[in-house]
Amino acid sequence: MLPGNIPMPPTFNTIEEERKYLKHKLTGAFRIFGKFGFSEGVAGHITVRDPELKDHFWVNPFGVSFNQIVSDHLLLVNHKGEVVEGNLPVNRAAFAIHSQIHEARPDVIAAAHSHSVYGKAFSALGQELAPITQDACAFYKDHALFNDYTGVVNELDEGKRIAEALSDYKAAILQNHGLITVGHSIDEAVWWFVTMERSCQAQLLAMQTGQKLIEIDHEIAMKTRQELGFPLAGYFQFQPMWQDICASQKF
């Protein structure tokens, strides 16, 4: 359990103040993805639901480096795929996937996806993460496997099927594709992505030894998830990364 005096998510007096905060936080989230090497050409996107227009979300433009994104680059997109604010092109896959997740999950404020190396390597196994480490337990019985890859996601139908597979979970492994995570804040969604990517890496490394993987007992894994895998824990664990990126970069 977290101590009672930890910093809590901020509150806002106006919609404009909240929107400015979210766009700044989203910009920093892309810088963090860039820092961790999660970019792969033009692939990858993080979205955040607009605080006023609930069927609109902010997203990175197509073809702009994670390391170069500033707040003015961000696009406001509605669930029809129309760019309501911004002058750059939108990634069709970002719209197809994220619009369906945001529509299906009113509780989701942010969603994150990229073609990170260990996530896409693990996705080729066609299996869920095993509870072999404390960190992996955050996803125990709380992530899905979407095993219906049909190529680049350009159609809403596949985005809808991904959203259906995600269900009420915090994350999904998209077989032969990569990872996607969601959260009640940008902080939470990005933290789940980072720690899921590292959990994939840890399991792949353990599998390379050829030894049998020792899984954590079901009851202990569930208890550990309850301690590490709830929304405020995700929000709080993101804060050191946020502190580092704010200290090292201007955005």
Rank of each mutant, 00 (worst) to 15 (best):
S39L: 11
T224H: 06
V194K: 03
E158F: 08
M196D: 02
N60A: 07
E215P: 07
G34M: 01
V190D: 00
V70H: 08
F36S: 08
L88K: 10
K212H: 11
G159Q: 04
L2G: 06
I186Y: 03
H184C: 11
P51I: 08
N5I: 15
A171R: 04
A124N: 13
G183A: 06
I69S: 00
W242E: 08
T181S: 05
M8P: 12
L166F: 07
N78Y: 06
G4C: 11
K54T: 12
N154W: 14
A43C: 13
L74W: 02
E158K: 09
A206Y: 00
L75P: 08
P131N: 08
E227G: 11
A110H: 05
L174I: 04
K80S: 11
Q239V: 02
Q226V: 14
E227F: 13
E197G: 01
V108I: 12
G63V: 07
V64H: 08
Q208P: 09
L22P: 04
Q243G: 12
D107A: 10
V152C: 05
L125T: 09
F33N: 07
N13I: 13
D168C: 12
E197A: 01
T133D: 01
A124E: 10
P131R: 09
V84H: 07
E82L: 11
Q134G: 02
V152G: 01
L156S: 13
A221P: 05
W192Q: 03
K80T: 13
Q211F: 06
N176P: 09
I69P: 02
N13D: 12
A163R: 06
F36M: 09
L166Q: 11
F139Y: 11
H115W: 01
L88W: 07
F122L: 03
Q226F: 14
G34Y: 04
Q134M: 05
D50A: 02
P7M: 01
H56V: 02
V108N: 11
K160G: 12
I109Y: 06
N147I: 12
